[in-house]
């Protein structure tokens, strides 16, 4: 969907996100400590770890919420540390927030359509946007399709401020799903959702990862849901990634067992048999 020129600048499309030796400090507190992480295109990774482990900070560094103190971050081979969030979005990377970020003063439809519009028009969209509306046929079809997928069709005209938290979370997900981004970064997509709502979203995400081969990075606490979506997992503890790799393997890594599961010194239940 991107204008070709933008795509041509990419030096390497096989590696979607490459984080190298990134460190971020807030005062004396080291939130992210010398983290390196590589996410290949069409791969998916889940990041777990206790609260305060630096997961959200890492996501914020990748998406440009703030700049790293040291280290480099590349998206499709392009160094992005100096780019603003909108510029990073032009590389095809979209994210959701832990605390939901939607437009309370617009309708559900407008929220999703506005997100789609940015993608349809590329970079020079602001002056031209006076001549475009959010209700042309192409936009309407796509938005309605996605709203339907997320079970939000009945709320289409509703002011978002009146929605429940669960619906807002779903909406935010729909807002980035609608543009079909190259890289999706989800910060705790299931937090605050009921079981039924999770079951509505789960197949969409599974499908995106497994069938559509989307590149996806998910920070999430609900481990069983997470492992059913992603292929790889990285465990963060006190600002560092202590293990990463395929789900099963990583979760049984001794370091992970010690720091994350707090199974200090306990023998592996499987081994004792």
């Amino acid at each position: 969907m991107f204008p070709l020129g933008e795509r041509a600048q990419f030096m390497d499309t096989s590696v979607a996100i490459q984080v190298e030796h990134v460190t971020k400090q807030f005062g004396d507190f080291v939130a992210v400590k010398d983290v390196s992480l590589e996410l290949k295109s069409c791969d998916s990774i889940g990041i777990i770890g206790p609260n305060g482990a630096g997961k959200t900070t890492l996501v914020n560094l990748i998406t440009g919420y703030y700049a790293p103190d040291r280290g480099s971050i590349r998206i499709f081979g392009k160094e992005i540390s100096a780019l603003s969030p909108p510029e990073r979005v032009s590389l095809g990377m979209l994210r959701t927030f832990q605390l939901v970020h939607v437009f309370d003063n617009l309708s559900v439809y407008e929220n999703v359509a506005l997100s789609l519009y940015r993608r349809q028009t590329g970079n020079h969209s602001i002056l031209l946007s006076f001549f475009r509306t959010l209700v042309d046929t192409r936009t309407r079809e796509r938005v309605e399709e996605v709203l339907d997928l997320f079970h939000l069709s009945s709320l289409e005209g509703e002011q978002v401020g009146n929605l429940s938290l669960g619906d807002k979370k779903k909406l935010e997900l729909a807002m980035i799903y609608v543009v079909d981004p190259e890289v999706m970064i989800l910060d705790e997509p299931f937090a605050g959702l009921g079981d039924q709502e999770i079951d509505e979203i789960l197949p969409i995400l599974k499908n995106a990862v497994q069938k559509q081969k989307k590149t996806m990075l998910i920070v999430e606490h609900k481990l069983s849901k997470l492992t059913s979506i992603v292929e790889n997992i990285a465990v963060m503890h006190e600002g560092a990634i202590i293990a990463s790799g395929p789900c099963e393997e990583t979760l049984n890594h001794p370091e992970v067992r010690r720091s994350y599961w707090k199974l200090d010194g306990c023998p592996d239940p499987k081994e004792t048999k």
């Binding site: 998406t63 603003s84 969030p85 909108p86 979005v89 032009s90 979209l94 994210r95 927030f97 970020h101 939607v102 437009f103 309370d104 003063n105 617009l106 407008e110 929220n111 359509a113 506005l114 997100s115 940015r118 993608r119 602001i126 946007s129 959010l134 935010e172 807002m175 980035i176």
Partner: peptide
């Protein structure tokens, strides 16, 4: 819509590109 969205949640707007 973009004006109102910017008022409503500027962060989201930026992270939408």
């Amino acid at each position: 819509a973009a004006f109102k969205a910017t008022q409503g949640n500027e962060r989201r707007m930026q992270f939408m590109g």
